[in-house]
């Protein structure tokens, strides 16, 4: 019975996706600049350049994953047998996955998705074990079998695709720059040229800053939030980080703003073992349902909308 209803959803989801893609391809409402496909190429020149660079650097297709399915393969059966699904999450990214110190619960956009996956795969959201995983430890946690899945703003790229399997992407992300509200910077280049700019160690942002090489000084820190501390203390002029984390910083400090423009568009997805395609297919099914059923949008509106620059549609990845 349950399977039947689920199986009818992909069609609906596909229809919706196509419709959304059509709208987006047409330029999007309210003049927003979607980061994907054609639309991004129509955007400002530096962005287009970035987009092309990225495409050259990515010989693989980050939008490719196994087709959605509700079949229980060996991996899904094993998870059902042990009656628990261990999902690696973040507990430091405000509004994405963060521990609320007053309730002790981890909450956020990624956590909603993790629980939805858990509920769909083993039928009980309480059987989901949320396990905090460090950024640098994500791939090892999967390969070592310490977690079944990673839902933790994990960027899909070709390097990582060699090590782990990704679901279809569930969010568009790009690099943004935060400045104090008092700053007069108009765009990204303006905001970082000859300034002291902060980025997290090993992040995409630090790579982008190194490639641009226009900042006076790049300060790298352990965690992106350390940049906000330094900005509040007046030790840096700007911070580059992805829009999810930029949103989370803006949410924590009313006196900083995200400047217009974005670079290095990427997508994020759910990661898991390469040897369990049935689990990947199952997660893809959940993602399709999650989006089609409106839960993705609801979660976006609850956690992220107040702090993001664009409407929800801008962030749902559409293959090009």
């Amino acid at each position: 019975m349950r399977d039947r209803t689920v199986r009818t959803r992909p069609a609906a989801a596909l229809a919706l996706l196509t419709a959304a893609a059509a709208v987006l391809g047409g330029g999007g409402p309210s003049g927003a600049a979607p980061a994907t496909g054609q639309a991004a190429r129509q955007a400002t020149a530096p962005q287009a350049v970035q987009q092309e660079q990225q495409e050259q650097a990515e010989p693989c297709d980050i939008y490719t994953s196994v087709p959605p399915s509700t079949q229980d393969g060996p991996a899904v059966k094993a998870i059902k047998a042990k009656r628990s699904l261990v999902i690696g999450v973040d507990q430091n990214s405000y509004r994405w996955g963060a521990r609320n110190p007053n309730t002790g619960q981890i909450e956020g956009f990624d956590i909603d998705l993790a629980r939805a996956i858990g509920a769909a795969v083993i039928g009980d959201p309480d059987k989901v074990v949320l396990k905090p995983v460090a950024t640098a430890d994500r791939v090892d946690a999967i390969k070592g079998g310490r977690v079944d899945l990673i839902v933790r703003t994990m960027t899909i790229n070709c390097d990582r695709m060699k090590d782990v399997a990704f679901s279809k992407p569930y969010f568009n992300i790009s690099q943004r720059v935060l400045v104090p509200k008092a700053s007069t910077a108009k765009g990204i280049d303006d905001a970082i040229k000859d300034r002291t700019v902060c980025a997290a160690k090993g992040s995409t942002a630090s790579t982008v800053l190194a490639a641009k090489n226009t900042a006076r000084q790049v300060v790298t820190v352990e965690n992106h939030l350390d940049c906000l501390v330094l900005m509040q203390l007046g030790k840096i002029d700007a911070t580059m980080t992805d829009d999810g984390l930029a949103a989370s910083q803006a949410a924590q400090d009313q006196t900083v703003r995200v400047v217009d423009g974005e670079v290095q568009p990427e997508v994020i997805g759910v990661a898991m073992l390469k040897t369990s395609p049935d689990l990947t297919a199952r997660v893809n099914q959940v993602l399709a349902d999650y989006y089609a059923g409106g839960a993705w949008r609801l979660s976006y509106e609850h956690w992220l909308k107040p702090y993001m620059l664009n409407e929800a549609d801008h962030y749902w990845p559409v293959p090009h």
Partner: peptide
């Protein structure tokens, strides 16, 4: 206030 920035401040 329940914002994670506190942790970053404390570590700093």
């Amino acid at each position: 206030q329940g914002i994670p920035l506190g942790g970053a401040y404390l570590r700093y």
